[in-house]
Design a protein around this nucleic acid. Structure first.
Length: 618
RNA sequence: GGACCCGUGGUGUAGCGGCCCAACAUGCCAGCCUGUCACGCUGGAGAUCGCCGGUUCGAAUCCGGUCGGGUCCGCCA
């Protein structure tokens, strides 16, 4: 059976998009939506559309008066069936823009299957801008439009490729439950009240983390799932309250073997879906977290362009003459710069805008120096800098400007991490504004060796920087400790501060595609790590008891990763918003404008759950 | 929790204190048209400018509030 024949149904012999000159002479029956109608009086043209494409139907009143009358009445988006004969188009009337443009269907019988109101926005104009809230309210109409339809098809193909590649490599697909136990850790949980056990709640999974590890203890060896995950946090263009992760876990692995598989899988799927888009570098470059922060000011670097951060500290003389610089260094901070070629002519208002952004990201300010090829310098701090400092600055950042429009030096002085992060953000924003990032290129990379913990001063505990189940790198096992010797008495100077995790993120064009780690599979070590994170033994057992218990029955060394399916699909589809690869996304306030969710439950539902609402005090 | 932007016929925009009972494009309706494919031509209908309040002789336009949408900071192990 051919692909096209599989789509034959009682109402159609063929699909609209599949007819070709080789079908000329065939009598066909088509069904679809009226994409466009061109009425020439006694001759009517219809573009008939279905998921597979568009075909022109022509009806001549002299040949088929009843069909002609039906099409004269019909309007856009009506659903009709057409019976007729495939004919070659007259010479000179072929349409090269259509895949079916060499032929047309001479309609003889037209049946109206469904009438349609005039749609609230253009379905037949792919470029027409439409307010997103309107698109969301009428999502079923937006999904008819070619761009969104194609992105949903791309996502489907991607998920299919993911499944195929995993099965080719011995993975087992397991569905884990959606109603699970709340573990107040990390993101806020979505809560579902229990009717059978009033007063208790389920939580929706933020990820199937514990379940997949339990599947490793169960011996499944290699697991994957296209898993729906839920996080009750504020939304963004790249964050929805429910989203899909490609969740993977493997047994008897180390970091190298997990990353080798994931890398091969990601590249294979990407190549199958977008063979047209170049992948910047293979095998994927790997940065340590430390290196990524120093060079790019980000743990998810966009490496499509260089413009790396420059640490000016070592190059500058002890006293620069500029107080902010000198004080920053005295207090152990860093002075970092990026050099923006071609922006030596920056305007005052653009500089103010950059400064405002730097401040929003936490910097105290932004120092800028514009330099021209002829050596002329503009900067609010030029007069403060000593001649030695000025010379040192130039040599550290690459000498005199060579770009015809001059160069711009952006300098941030501040604490080690903050100064890097602020400049890292500006680096990406400036590069995108200047068009330095090739939108076609797919630049994947790995970032690994993250710190295990970061100090949480308020609660006096060590917080997992990524995943609380991650294992330290082997040489740092002994760092999971406190200076006091008591895991309950923690302080910022604990050895734990220096522990690195066997944690790895895969990054694409500056987006964190996914993150994973080698897990701790030893109960005592996991309890030790939890203690550093502020969990008492009882607390840890209450929250993660199943996993801790399971580790006492023979746990294989294991590790895995979770990859954001929407982010991956969005990047492959050239989108910067994951709503554009989701069939039915929610708004920034968490509403479904089509279903009008969330909505108030009715009294009966409250009663069954044994709940009531108390008005919020204003 | 916070900052900023947007809301004008069905859709997308213009208008930003009187010249506006609001303009343009498209869509819609009617008529004409046998080779169009964003068909064309002629004519027509359609918005009290998100909502509430205020300032003013006068508000789409200014101010306050509110609702909806978006971008961002915080948040997102």
């Amino acid at each position: 059976m051919t692909e096209a024949a599989k789509l034959t149904t009682g109402l159609r012999s063929d699909v609209c998009g599949a007819l070709r000159p080789s079908d000329v002479g065939r009598r066909v029956r088509l069904a679809g939506w009226i994409h466009r109608r061109r009425d020439h009086g006694s001759l009517v043209f219809i573009d008939l559309r279905d998921r597979y494409g568009i075909v022109q139907v022509v009806v001549d009143a002299a040949v088929a008066p009843e069909a002609h009358a039906a099409l004269t009445d019909a309007r856009s988006e009506w659903v009709i069936a057409v019976e007729g004969t495939v004919a070659a188009r007259r010479a000179g009337t072929e349409n090269e823009k259509l895949a079916t443009g060499g032929i047309e269907v001479a309609g003889e019988i037209v049946t109206v299957l469904s009438q349609a109101k005039t749609p609230p926005f253009y379905i037949n104009d792919t470029d027409a801008p439409v307010d997103e809230s309107l698109r969301l309210k009428y999502r079923y109409l937006d999904l008819r439009r070619e761009p969104l339809r194609d992105r949903i098809l791309l996502r489907s193909a991607m998920v299919q490729a993911i499944r195929e590649v995993h099965h080719e490599h011995g993975f087992v697909e397991v569905e884990t439950p959606i109603l699970i136990k709340s573990t107040p850790e990390g993101a806020r949980d979505f809560i579902v009240p229990s009717r059978l056990q009033q007063g208790s709640v389920y939580a929706l999974p933020q990820s199937p983390q514990q379940m997949k590890q339990l599947l490793m203890v169960a011996g499944f060896d290699r697991y994957f799932q296209i898993a729906r995950c839920f996080r009750d946090e504020d939304l963004r263009g790249d964050r929805q309250p429910e989203f899909t992760q490609l969740d993977i876990e493997m047994s008897f692995v180390d970091e190298a073997s997990v990353r080798a598989y994931v890398e091969a899988m990601v590249i294979e799927v990407t190549k199958r879906i977008r063979p047209d888009r170049p992948i910047q570098q293979l095998p994927l470059p790997t940065f340590t977290y430390e290196e990524a922060m120093e060079r790019y000011g980000s743990d998810k670097p966009d490496i499509r362009f260089a413009m790396e951060l420059i640490d000016l500290g070592a190059s500058l003389p002890e006293s620069t003459g500029f107080k902010v610089f000198d004080e920053t260094r005295a207090s152990g901070g860093r002075i970092r710069a990026i050099r923006v070629a071609g922006r030596g002519g920056i305007t005052r208002s653009d500089v103010d805008d950059l400064t405002e952004r730097a401040k929003r990201y936490g910097a105290n300010g932004l120092v800028w120096i514009a330099l021209q090829p002829d050596g002329e310098v503009r900067s609010p701090i030029a007069k403060f800098l000593s001649p030695e400092a000025t010379t040192a600055l130039w040599s550290a950042t690459g000498g005199k400007a060579t770009h015809a429009d001059g160069d711009l030096l952006l300098i941030v002085a501040g604490p080690k991490i903050l100064s890097a992060e602020v400049l890292g953000r500006l680096r990406v924003e400036v590069a995108l504004e200047l068009g330095l990032a090739d939108p076609d290129v797919l630049a994947f990379c790995w970032v690994h060796r993250f710190p295990m913990y970061q100090w949480e001063a308020e609660s006096g505990r060590w917080d997992a920087t990524h995943n609380p189940f991650s294992a330290p790198v082997p040489e740092h096992l002994n760092l999971l400790a406190t200076t006091s010797g008591d895991l309950a008495k923690r302080s910022e100077g604990d050895p734990a501060a220096g522990a690195l995790a066997q944690q790895y993120d895969i990054v694409l064009n500056g987006w964190e595609l996914g993150g994973g780690s080698i897990r701790i599979h030893d109960r005592a070590l996991l309890e030790r790590s939890f203690a550093l994170m502020g969990h008492s033994l009882e607390d840890a057992r209450a929250k993660f008891g199943a996993l801790l218990d399971a580790f006492e029955y023979g746990a294989p060394p294991h590790g895995g990763i979770a990859i954001g399916v929407e982010r991956w699909a969005a990047l492959l589809a050239g989108q910067i918003n994951i709503r554009e690869v989701m069939a039915f996304p929610k708004t920034q306030s968490g509403s479904d404008l089509m279903l009008e969710a969330p909505s108030e439950p009715d009294a009966k539902q409250w009663a069954e759950l044994g709940l009531s609402v108390r008005p919020v005090k204003s």
